Amino acid sequence: MEKGDDLKIDYIEFNVADIAAAKAFYGRAFGWSFTDYGPSYCEFNDGRLTGGFTNNQPPRPGGGPLVILYADKLEEALEKVEHAGGKIVKPITAFPGGRRFHFLDKDAYELAVWSKT
Rank of each mutant, 00 (worst) to 15 (best):
E2Q: 15
G4Y: 07
G4W: 05
D5V: 00
L7I: 07
L7R: 14
K8F: 01
Y11S: 00
I12Q: 10
F14G: 08
N15Q: 11
D18A: 02
A20Y: 04
K23S: 04
K23E: 15
A24L: 10
A24G: 03
A24I: 02
F25Y: 10
F25A: 04
R28H: 11
R28F: 03
F30P: 05
S33C: 03
T35P: 01
T35G: 03
D36I: 02
G38W: 04
C42V: 14
C42S: 15
E43F: 04
N45L: 02
N45W: 08
D46L: 04
G47W: 05
G47I: 02
R48V: 10
T50F: 04
G51A: 08
Q57E: 10
P58G: 05
P59F: 02
R60C: 04
R60T: 13
L69S: 04
Y70K: 05
A71Q: 07
D72V: 09
D72I: 06
D72L: 06
E75H: 05
E76A: 12
E76M: 07
L78I: 01
G85L: 10
G85A: 10
K90C: 09
I92N: 12
A94S: 15
A94G: 13
F95S: 12
F95A: 12
G97E: 14
R100K: 15
R100F: 14
H102R: 15
F103P: 12
F103T: 13
F103G: 12
D105N: 15
D107R: 12
V113S: 12
W114A: 14
T117Y: 11
T117R: 11
